[in-house]
Design a protein around this nucleic acid. Structure first.
Lengths: 344, 344
DNA sequence: GAGCAGCCTGCATACGTTTTCAGGAAACCG
DNA sequence: CGGTTTCCTGAAAACGTATGCAGGCTGCTC
């Protein structure tokens, strides 16, 4: 249970003894304070170097009141989308001398609570929350920490001070427009489980695009998965069972599109000849599927760097924009084509 | 530059004042020490709860000499293989009350050094290194930290005390055997850049399998990429240029196999009808390619949990095995078939 | 009622830093 | 040469927590 007695690291006092000065002087010398004689400072630093001295973060943070760390909460690091999240954040943070605590919540409320608590104990200077639910559920606990918080792609950004999110409405409209421009008239929307804000927004964009093009909105063409890739085939089956099935499907995200893709292949239907598919996210693998997936790219790396920068700005006392919406980008690949075309 | 003055969190002394006791008693009450009267302990805990008290990790670690944190170094979190690494570790660590510091080195020596230094300052209790080069390059700095270190899939495991790695030789032999069993006689090895230990080991397994089956070893059938997926097509082109090209290729990893797959498709060659391909890793996307990729699965999740458990054992003072080799598993999909077959 | 054990509590110190304050020595000015 | 400034240094307090030690109170025993 208890850890073995660690060999105590060499402290500031130890090298004070070696250098025949007070530990105050050592502290100043190491922080390059102008208050100390250049020659003795140099001597002290040399001794510190030789004795392998490394300052204690915990001790320092006790007096400086900050730890130079930020916490990052993510639903699941194994999720390819979130892996990039963490990468961008860590990079930006490191450039500013901050270290990152990482935790994934696994969408488990108990664990989410535990994670927030743990970050609080470690006295992180700031927090980035990329787990959609955490923001909503633990708002009270979070704001009680009284540290800057940035939410990315969170469900209810408006309730928090700072956030960065993808421009869902615009992106969905752009995606649907693309299908319309190809000549599709019967375009389905395969959404996420009901009630997610991102889903609602994307659906709004879909309807806007239809309205712009004077296409009728048909409720039959709107189906929903269950939040997992596994639910997509059933939803797709409902669409195919219609008297007049759609010629194109706007999928909630790439994983959904992939599941649909496999399902269609099993049924002997071709993409994009028989059905066009467009996804959302531009996951790493979207480029490698067959056919490669046309999709709306979420610039995750930039979004995360933006979130990190926003947080770092806040930590350095600068004002920051409250809410940032990043535009998605249409990535044209081979899963969309004009309806009834013999080759994409 | 300087952070704004944080509102000081409520401390142990503050609730001592509220509860009309000394801060020592508060400390004991919160740690559930038997030395304190159950009723006052309860009262203290209630007051602490109400005032939103949260103990300070830095302050505590100053006296307990450990921080309940571990550091994880990884080359790139965006790399899908490593994303899983971190997931398994974080989960296991969290179950034992440890938080994880995450850093990716980006294979940049300066940054690697910086990261190690930073972890040292934060006084992490232990370290997991999943960045192949870090182990070799910064051995001195690492061992000077005098904390337990576990290496995963590192280049020179033997020089460190603890490590977990994939059984490369066995895995490669198994992969090659599979191709031989399908009837292939001309089997190529598309390796990584020269000099990597993992590549050397996999190559050894490849040769062993050939020898077992009394197949001749042909140096022409051994090519190398440049460490990136981009280098694979060129290597593949060399193989196709041979008088007698191979009927099957053992690819160093899945990304390489994918690059080859695309290259072959461009050339109008079919997989597996014209060429069989086998990969290594079983990345998330291997299941979604067309055709789905036959590959050797590295049980990353388990490996990382194993590494984390090993580290946690060490931290708790238990003895631990020094080196663990995990077996890979052959995942049969559709990218391999008997040579010249018309369908997989 | 004296002695004693057991339970609980507070005092003091320590952990490794940073920082304020005061002061000594040197240098400078008149 | 006295006074003042400048430069450097050390003493001391503080950050929030854990814990050894001493001691006070209660209740028990004889």
């Amino acid at each position: 249970m208890c850890s073995p007695p660690l060999p105590r690291a060499v402290s500031i006092k130890e090298i004070a003894r070696l250098a025949q000065v007070s530990h105050s002087t050592v502290s100043r010398a190491l922080r390059h304070s102008p208050l100390v004689n250049p020659k003795t400072a140099e001597r002290i630093r040399r001794i510190a170097e030789e004795s392998g001295y490394c300052p204690s973060g915990p001790a320092r943070s006790l007096v400086t009141r900050h730890t130079e760390t930020i916490g990052v909460i993510v639903t699941s690091i194994a999720d390819p989308l979130h892996a990039e999240v963490v990468g961008g954040i860590e990079e930006a943070a490191n450039e500013h001398g901050f270290s990152v605590f990482l935790a994934n919540s696994n969408a488990d409320p108990e664990r989410e609570f535990h994670v927030v608590r743990s970050f609080q104990q470690h006295r992180v200077d700031g927090l980035i929350v990329a787990a959609p639910r955490v923001g909503a559920l633990h708002m009270a606990a979070l704001s009680r920490m009284r540290i800057p918080i940035v939410l990315v792609n969170n469900q209810h950004p408006s309730e928090f001070v700072h956030s960065v999110a993808i421009a869902n409405v615009d992106a969905a409209r752009q995606a649907t427009r693309h299908l319309i421009a190809l000549g599709h008239r019967r375009i389905a929307s395969l959404g996420n489980r009901f009630g997610y804000q991102s889903d609602t927004e994307r659906f709004a964009g879909y309807r806007q695009a239809l309205a712009e093009a004077d296409l009728p909105f048909e409720p039959d063409l709107v189906v929903h998965g269950d939040g997992t890739p596994g639910g997509a085939p059933a939803a797709m089956a409902r669409l195919l069972g219609l008297a007049a099935p759609p010629t194109a499907v706007f999928c909630y995200n790439d994983m959904t599109a992939l599941a649909v893709l496999r399902h269609l292949r099993c049924l002997g239907l071709r993409v994009p000849e028989d059905v066009s598919l467009i996804g959302f996210d531009d996951l790493f693998l979207a480029e490698y599927t067959d056919p490669p997936l046309t999709t709306m790219r979420q610039p995750m790396w930039q979004m995360d760097r933006a979130a990190a920068r926003m947080l770092l700005d806040l930590l350095e006392g600068n004002a920051a924009v409250e809410n940032v919406q990043m535009p998605a980008e249409l990535i044209l690949r081979q899963s969309t084509a004009p309806p009834g075309s013999s080759h994409g």
